[in-house]
Amino acid sequence: MALALLIAVFLTGFILGATGYIDTIINSIINEEVRAYRQALTSSPQKPPAEEIEKLVAQRKQELIAYWGMDKPWQARIIPMVINTFILNLGRSPSPEVTNVAGLQPNSLVSDVIAACLPRTIFMITLAEAITILIALAVGPFIVYRIGSFIDRFIVAYAALMNAFPIWWVALVMLLVFSYDLGVAPKQFRPVVTYINALLLGDLNALIGVLNYVWLPIVTIVIVLSGPWIYGVRAMLIRIVKEDFVTAAIARGLPEKQILRRYIIRPAASPIVTNVLLGLAGTLGGYIITESVFDWPGMGTLYYAAVTSGDAQTILALTYIFTLVYVIARFILEVLYIILDPRVRL
C-alpha cells in the first residue's frame, strides 16, 4: 500500500516533468512577465535608450529563470520536490490562481493553502456523502424486508436512474433552476469562505450563512448519490437475507427490529463499512468536476487550478494527500475487519 503512495507521487512528478508540461507553463509565465516588463519600460515617461532596455529585460529574464529554477533540467527540480512531498515538506505555491482558491497571497505555504481549502470540501462534499450514507443505511434495511413491493421497485428504479445521470450535469440543471430561474440559491459560491472561517473560529451564528450557500450543492449530491448507495446497501443486505439462518429466525417469530439488527446487519457490516470508509475517503479528490461546476473553493477546485497553472508543488502535494487518505482508510479497514468479522483473526 505504501507502494501505491510512492507510485502515485512519482508518477505525477514524472508526468509533470517528462511531458514538458511544467516547463511549458513556466516558460509562458516567464515570457509573459518579460513582455510586460518590456512594455512597461518602453511606455514609461523616462524611456531608457534601446540597448539599455534590452539589458534590463535580459537581466529581468535571468532573475525570473533563477526564481523559477528553469536553469536546471526538470529532473533536478521535480525530484527534490517529490522527495520533499513524501516527508511532508510541501513547499510554497508560486501560482496566484491556486492561492486565489484558498483566499491567500501568492507564494503562501502549500500546507496553508491545503489547510484552507480542506474544510470547505469537508463541509460540502464529505458532509453530503455522510448524509447520503445515513439515508441509505436507514432506508436499506427498511426495504430489504419488503423486497418486491412497490416501494422497493420504486427505489430500485430511482437508483438506476440516478446511476445514469452524471452528477455534474444534475448540478448544472439545479443551478439553472434554483439559482438562475428561481433565485432561491446563490449564483456565486465563493463567499461561503467567510462564513466557514467564522464558523471554525467558533462563531455559531455563521452557521446560517454557511447553510445558505451549502444547501444546494448538498441537496444535489444527496439526490444523485442516494440512488446508488441505497441500491448498494440493499444488494449487500439481500445476499444475507436469502441465507437460511435468516429464514429460520423469521420462522421462529422474532421481531423485525431484532432480526434486522442481529441477523442481517451484523454480517453485512463488513462490506458496508468498507464502502462507507472508502466513499468518505474518496470525497477529497473524487469530485473535482462537481466542485468546478459550483465553483466551490475546495480541494477539487484547488487541484484543477494547480493543474491549469502548472503549480507542481501543489499538484504533488494534493496527489500525495488524496492517495494517503485512501491508503489510511484501507489500513483502518483491515484493522476493523478483525473486529467486525469473527472469521478473520490475526
Binding site: 500500500m1 501505491a4 503512495l5 507510485i7 502515485a8 508518477l11 505525477t12 508526468i15 509533470l16 511531458t19 514538458g20 508540461y21 511549458t24 507553463i25 474518496g282 479528490g285 473524487g286 473535482i288 468536476i289 487541484y303 484543477y304 493543474v307 491549469t308 502548472g310 499538484i315 494534493l318 496527489t319 488524496f322 492517495t323 485512501y326 491508503v327 484501507r330
Partner: peptide, 18 residues
C-alpha cells in the same frame, strides 16, 4: 489506491497544453 480522477486530469491537461 491511486486516485483516478486527479491523474486523469493531470495527464489530459498536460497533453492539451504541450
Amino acid at each position: 489506491s491511486i486516485p483516478l480522477l486527479p491523474i486523469l486530469i493531470l495527464i489530459a491537461q498536460s497533453i492539451a497544453k504541450t
